[in-house]
């Protein structure tokens, strides 16, 4: 069931061939490694197709140009970043490598750091973002930051306040902002409570306690919104206003996506979720 189809195999080989024209050495300073990326893509694509059953809705809106891609963050572990990157490679007509900006903590993790970088992940640092946008590459930013990914079950799909850094970067480089929403990633770990105090004591950004260790096969839908290009005469007020509009657009896409979400063990997940939400609200009115 989890086997790489011939079509996907050929597609991955074509993608790597195309990327080799841009990166003749097969690598870049941020750790992109086309040889390792090809192997990793071939390993992950069956999971992408058959386990998470990812659908990219609105792919026709993506043009062959540089973007600052903005998404809600969900799923406890940054699988959403990997799935978005894969969707842009596998399900978009033009070969579109987007570079997810990852947390500093991720860069310290053995193996994860190596494979994430090989697939294009970059440390979430402003200087890195500026270099990439200067080189006309696309970056993927989660403006909610760690707060977005470290939510307890009752707070699933509650979008946290956006930071404005992504907008300022897009304005500086006159790059279009492409908002998107990911639906389904929260259900990979449906029952989660964060032991924040213990996590801090251990020097971790968060410590999710979940009933399941491996992500469940929750179907993922990625909704592409309408792109927005900042003007070159932005001020504090306009930045604040436009970031708010982008945040609202993502919230709307999440509501739409939740209404159309594919069922996933709803008969058991929903009653338990409702119970957790009820209990949680009793404690935190």
């Amino acid at each position: 069931m989890l086997a790489l189809s011939n079509t996907d195999k050929k597609k991955i080989e074509r993608i790597i061939r195309t990327m080799k024209k841009e990166y003749p050495e097969g690598t870049d300073p941020w750790g992109l490694n086309l040889e390792l990326a090809e192997k990793t893509l071939k390993f992950l694509t069956p999971l992408y197709r058959s386990y998470f059953k990812v659908r990219l809705i609105g792919a026709e809106k993506i043009q062959n140009k540089s973007y600052v891609v903005i998404s809600n963050h969900s799923g406890q572990i940054p699988i959403d970043a990997i799935l978005i990157s894969m969707a842009f490679l596998l399900d978009v007509e033009s070969t579109h490598l987007i570079r997810p900006m990852v947390e500093k903590f991720m860069a310290t993790l053995p193996f994860i750091n190596k494979y994430a970088s090989a697939l294009g992940a970059v440390l979430g640092d402003r200087q890195n973002a500026h270099y990439l946008l200067e080189r006309k590459q696309s970056i993927l930013v989660f403006p909610e930051g760690v707060k977005g990914i470290t939510k307890n079950s009752p707070d699933f799909y509650k979008v946290q306040d956006f930071t404005q850094g992504f907008y300022r970067m897009a304005a500086t480089h006159q790059t279009a902002i492409l908002p998107l929403a990911v639906i389904g990633a929260e259900e990979m770990y449906p029952f989660v409570i964060h032991a924040s105090g213990l996590g801090k004591w251990m020097g971790l950004p968060s410590l999710p306690l979940s009933l399941n260790l491996l992500p469940l096969p929750s179907p993922i839908d990625i909704y592409i919104g309408d792109e927005f290009t900042p003007s070159d005469k932005e001020n504090e007020k306009s930045i604040q206003h436009n970031v708010f509009l982008i945040e609202q657009q993502i919230k709307k896409m999440i509501l739409l996506g939740l209404a159309k979400r594919r069922p996933f063990f709803d008969f058991i997940r929903k009653p338990i979720s409702h119970f957790i939400i009820k209990e949680f609200r009793k404690k935190k009115p």
Binding site: P29, K104, L123
Partner: peptide, 8 residues
């Protein structure tokens, strides 16, 4: 050589 070094 730190984990949060920017490139260049």
């Amino acid at each position: 050589a730190l984990s949060d070094n920017p490139v260049f």
